[in-house]
Design a protein around this nucleic acid. Structure first.
Length: 257
DNA sequence: GCGACAG
DNA sequence: ATCTTGTCGC
């Protein structure tokens, strides 16, 4: 009896993952992996004025509540010109390869709220905390959010997601040691030989690289240059500010219980 | 078979 | 992701 229930649970989970994979492949048809905006083609991103950053912060041992944040920074100043934090109820667990199903709904909602409140503040490109095509099926959270909003989107992960076909972890660690100067980077190549992303030494101080990949409506080259130009510290400022603000929001509004 | 695995 | 202060170093 219990065994049958467990078996059923596993089967349901398996079916859910297959369904999620199907959705990823379907949305992927709309993904654009090259530059589509005028500001992307010039060396200093002339015409780019607003960059968005999104993030979710979690609560220790709370599987339901979290805080979703959206910030918009001016460019090239990188000053916060819009900020919103919103408590949300999580519906999906974290499963590597399916992060978008856990976070994207709330990020999309935040962008739609901004669109409604003040369209003139909508970002021209979004930085997402996680990967773009550096992903098992080449459709990570940055692609997912990009396609749903149809905004240019860059994926930046602080840790490497192990995708089959990628080089061994040790080999990549060796290459990371060779990154001498900020801006130095090396390609992350998938099994097909395709470049899925870049490991970037984002600022002079950092030892550990960040992993940049295409989300939507941007080329890898542009994504890398833009990411580098947004780094005062290791993590690009839009993501860093979203992270700081959502964590602070939780600290002030949840911990007081 | 076991371990690894964005947030 | 989160639990966590100080501390060693440029």
């Amino acid at each position: 009896m219990a065994a049958a229930l467990l078996e059923g649970e596993c089967k349901n989970r398996e079916l859910l993952l297959r369904e999620w994979e199907r959705q990823q492949m379907e949305l992927k048809e709309q993904m654009i992996d090259h530059d589509t905006e005028d500001w992307q083609s010039n060396e200093v991103f002339e015409g780019l004025e607003r960059i968005g950053g999104v993030d979710l912060s979690y609560i220790k041992g709370d599987e339901v509540n979290a805080c979703a944040s959206l910030v918009v920074l001016s460019y090239p100043d990188l000053k916060v010109i819009y900020e919103e934090c919103q408590m949300v109820c999580l519906t999906a667990p974290y499963i590597p390869g399916f992060l978008a199903f856990r976070e994207t709904p709330f990020l999309e909602e935040a962008l739609r709220r901004l669109q409604h409140k003040d369209p003139s503040l909508l970002p021209q490109v979004i930085f997402a905390d996680g990967n773009g095509i550096l992903h098992h099926r080449e459709f990570g959270v940055a692609c997912h959010l990009g396609v749903l909003t149809d905004l240019p989107c860059v994926g930046v992960a602080k840790n490497l997601l192990h995708v089959s076909g990628l080089e061994e972890k040790d080999s990549l660690k060796e290459k990371a040691k060779d990154l001498q100067k900020e801006g130095n980077a090396f390609s992350l190549i998938g099994s097909s030989g395709k470049v899925l992303g870049m490991a970037l030494k984002s600022c002079e101080k950092s030892t550990k690289p960040i992993y940049v990949s295409v989300g939507h409506r941007i080329s890898l080259d542009t994504a890398l240059r833009l990411t580098h130009s947004c780094c005062k510290y290791r993590v690009p400022e839009p993501i860093r500010q979203a992270d700081i603000r959502s964590r602070e929001y939780i600290r002030k509004n949840v911990n007081v219980s």
